[in-house]
């Protein structure tokens, strides 16, 4: 009788410990699952800072540090004139927007195909700004055609 009760007591503890272990494993699993399945940023779900290609270039040219603080990693809704259209080495469409400096462009990579575009056309592109490379371009990627 006495031994039986002790056995029951232990059984209860084992059950509790097992339950805790299972709970930990499940939580760990959920955390790992979330880490590996966290979606990439989707710019279509964000409101972009509205700028023209020239305004964005001017901001970086005058004060790169201040522009980084304002625009780095932000969704930008950029309007400008297309200088040229090409494909990057992965096959994604890239549009360069004109600025008043013939050597400097706003380099924009689409994550989805925007359909037919032509040089000289004015469009609005929404993407995430990764920064400025002096004497070359401001880079925006992971973008879509907004207008």
């Amino acid at each position: 009788m006495h031994i039986n009760r002790k056995f029951n007591f232990m059984k209860r503890w084992i059950r509790i410990i097992l339950a805790i272990a299972v709970a930990c494993a499940v939580t760990g699993g959920i955390i790992a699952y979330r880490i590996f399945n966290k979606p990439h940023r989707d710019v279509t779900q964000e409101t972009g800072v509205a700028l023209t290609a020239q305004q964005l270039y001017d901001a970086f040219k005058t004060n790169e540090q201040a522009a980084n603080q304002k625009y780095l990693d932000k969704a930008i809704q950029l309007t400008g004139e297309i200088a040229d259209i090409s494909k990057n080495q992965e096959g994604n469409i890239v549009v360069n927007f004109k600025t008043n400096d013939p050597l400097v462009m706003i380099n924009c990579t689409f994550k989805t195909n925007p359909g037919e575009l032509k040089p000289g056309q004015n469009i609005t592109f929404k993407g995430i700004c990764t920064g400025y490379i002096p004497d070359a371009n401001v880079v925006i990627n992971e973008g879509v055609l907004a207008k």
Binding site: F36, H40, L72, T130, G131, I133, V139
Partner: peptide
């Protein structure tokens, strides 16, 4: 060569 660090794309967003 010049590149922007934020332009590196990983398979896993969390790692990025």
């Amino acid at each position: 060569f010049s590149l922007l660090i934020k332009g590196f794309r990983f398979k896993y967003a969390e790692m990025q």
